[in-house]
Design a protein around this nucleic acid. Structure first.
Lengths: 201, 201
DNA sequence: TACATTTGCTTAACGGTGTTAGATTATTTA
DNA sequence: TAAATAATCTAACACCGTTAAGCAAATGTA
């Protein structure tokens, strides 16, 4: 009898509804306003129900983090595949990263702990590693001399990442600062080009 | 009668005790563990007393933020005054900034919203502007061609700041990542030198 | 069909949070 | 000594995450 499946599908729908509700609350009221009772209100249940789908609040945050990395991974992959040269790929990937951060502020804040209560144990998340691997590979491809020392890739990776993450953080935490979009783009592209150029010189 | 002054001094002592207690709790248990009742416990009062010294919890956070900028300002000023050339000043100042962040993790998290509940309205804080001004002036001094366009200083400022803040954030949020101290120092100094060199070329 | 069991969901509670109002105690002033 | 003022506490409110107990409807079994 297929009713088992129907019920499972319904359960899955509720799970999705919980995640959607959480995201909606965060997007309209900010992370600080997210509460189990508010989520329950939104899905027209009472709070304890949520604990049948997630072990606790952090479980919800963890799942949203995972989803965030999924989207980011897709964006970066698509950016990479639109270009031919290693240099173009590199720039496009980091710009995709940048765009993701501002198109999905709430996700980025959750994933990278900007202006957020940090969910401590998010190391070793598979989706996060995928993003790291893609970017690492793209960096390796920039080197004319192969093979490339693992340590060099690591260094360059952190250099790229630091400047981009730093720029994003500054903009997300202080949205009313004096940084204009043009200024950001200028810094971003200059920095990427600078790091990329320094690789084979 | 000097008792008025004595009482004022006592009040000021309590105020300081509140801030010290808050800092102590945060340093030993983390920001997330900071509560009004815990502060009250530490200073051997009950929670409502605190509201006679600070309008609310955010008031305490704001005052700590101010103190943080004071320390950072002092550190950067001292670093600057220890060197002669504009280049050396620049490097020393950013390294002082870096050292401040790790010697005063809790302050840095509060001031720059890393892994923290952000206190929203901390724009236009005098002490923060002082830090910005000092760094801006140091950047201006790097230029051989004077006078320097305000926009150029701004760009370079954000470039420096982004990479350093980014590197710090990554290290503060993920203390158990694969970044070693040497790697960090390497990235940091390389990046500073790179940006500094790019100024007059 | 009648009973037992499982399922879905709610109410009520616990201990915690920031914050405020009212009562109480201690100190100063007249 | 009595009144006034200051210092401090208790109790409460509304919220938070989370858990336990209970109810009511659906389901399985005889």
């Amino acid at each position: 009898m297929g009713s088992k499946e129907r019920i499972l599908r319904l359960k899955d729908e509720t799970r999705t509804k919980i995640l959607d509700a959480a995201l909606k609350i965060v997007q309209t009221e900010g992370w600080q306003a997210l509460s189990m009772r508010k989520i329950a209100d939104q899905i027209e249940y009472t709070a304890p129900i949520i604990y049948e789908y997630f072990s606790n609040k952090e479980g919800i945050l963890l799942e949203l983090t995972r989803k965030g990395y999924e989207i980011l991974g897709k964006d970066i992959r698509e950016a990479r595949d639109k270009h031919e040269s290693a240099e173009d790929k590199m720039e496009a990937m980091w710009i995709a990263y940048w765009n993701f951060a501002f198109a999905n502020k709430e996700f980025y804040q959750l994933m990278y702990g900007v202006d957020m209560v940090c969910c401590n144990v998010k190391s070793s998340m598979h989706e996060a590693e995928t993003v790291g691997t893609m970017l690492g590979d793209a960096i390796e491809a920039l080197y004319k001399k192969q093979p490339v020392c693992e340590n060099d890739i690591c260094t360059k990776y952190y250099t790229y990442w630091s400047i981009i993450h730093g720029l994003i953080s500054i903009n997300l935490v202080r949205p009313n600062g004096r940084t204009t979009d043009e200024l950001n783009q200028q810094i971003l592209k200059d920095a990427i080009k600078g790091i990329t150029l320094s690789i084979n010189s």
